[in-house]
Nucleic acid binder design. Structure first.
Lengths: 203, 203
DNA sequence: ATTATCTATAGATCTATAGATAATGC
DNA sequence: ATTATCTATAGATCTATAGATAATGC
């Protein structure tokens, strides 16, 4: 019922893995943060890898609904894209370590690749096909500039996530304060909308 | 004179650190790839950390000249920006692991932050100030849309590096072949120019 | 009876060095 | 003499488990 210790371990594992990645996290760190005995981690989750996979799967799943809104939504194309940029951006603001975490682990763990594929492949293909058809039609009727769905999604994600993947770098490099950084992040959202819509729509 | 073993170790360390990062690379791996005895790594470089710092510094230094071309160059603004996007892009094509490597290590090693700062801080501040003044003037004379130097540089770097940081992810996810991926990368260069110049210049 | 927790430690892995030996430079 | 290379191993760190003990559920 309570599952207090078990949950604490999972929570602590999430904190540690998300901030340091699999390789640099130790099971002792996790147990310490969970305020529990080291042996209990293995008692409940068998192995470090197993515990990690649980954390990875949980975090991957939360992203899917975001992408669905790109096609499953009654708004007109322009508003729908703007909405996606903003919702995706806000999600990353709430989960700033997630993009780096996913990239990092997919690059270093074959299991993560498979999990990612299994959960994403069909949904991404579907969204891509739908959006591709829509973009082509809008282009042929002269409403937007020519762009593929892949490139459009790519540009949105790039502009949105880089603030959180590379920005800790820039922040430390340029001695930017926490307040300045938050101000920068907030105006990036509007900037990204301007840049992407500017790419799509003739002025 | 020859320094063959010593150089081999440094070369191997660069391969290993760039592809796996500090934490997931072992000194035994490096020695094996260098085709030398494990003990020689410590004989020549004292410690793993020391060897890593050498690799990091070397790779950091090569980036600086790229950024200088953004202001130290006789081309008009538009061509200069286009040139920077293309040169920066090509550089990453030649060194695809570098962006991830730098981000990864800066996020996990305080020494790397300091090295980065020491080498970049003054030059970045100078370039930023110069470009900021130029952009402001161009905006006031009605030649470009309003944008800060920081945002402009940020958007160029984001669009350019994401193809190489996050794309291995997308490649594996979407089952894209090597050829398709290279084709995608090549057209991204022109795409990024279109997107950035579209952001700057009214049509 | 079953589940949860603890202590203690095995066993694997990794960095680093001591100390012996071989190769090279003057 | 100095530099380069090797073997062997110390010592640190980490994952994982065995086995004892305490807490809980029926």
């Amino acid at each position: 019922m309570e599952k207090k210790t078990e949950d604490n371990i999972l929570w602590a594992a999430e904190q540690e893995f998300l901030s340091k990645g699999f390789a640099r996290t130790t099971t002792a760190d996790i147990a310490k943060l969970a305020g529990t005995n080291h042996a209990l981690l293995h008692y409940y989750y068998r192995s470090k890898e197993n515990l990690f996979i649980k954390v990875f799967e949980k975090n991957i799943q939360t992203i899917i609904p975001l992408f669905c809104s790109l096609t499953d939504n009654n708004l007109p194309l322009k508003e729908r894209i703007q909405n996606f940029i903003e919702v995706h951006f806000d999600y990353i603001v709430q989960n700033p370590r997630l993009p780096y975490f996913i990239i990092n682990e997919i690059l270093s763990n074959a299991n993560c690749v498979q999990i990612f594929q299994k959960q994403f492949q069909s949904i991404i293909n579907e969204i891509n096909a739908k959006l591709e058809a829509e973009l082509r039609q809008e282009y042929e009727t002269g409403h937007i500039n020519n762009i593929t769905a892949g490139n459009l999604i790519y540009e949105i994600i790039s502009l949105n996530i880089c603030a959180f993947v590379a920005m800790p770098v820039a922040t430390q490099l340029l001695n930017i304060s926490q307040e300045e950084y938050l101000r920068f992040v907030q105006q990036r959202k509007a900037e990204n909308v301007v840049t992407i819509l500017g790419r799509l729509y003739k002025k």
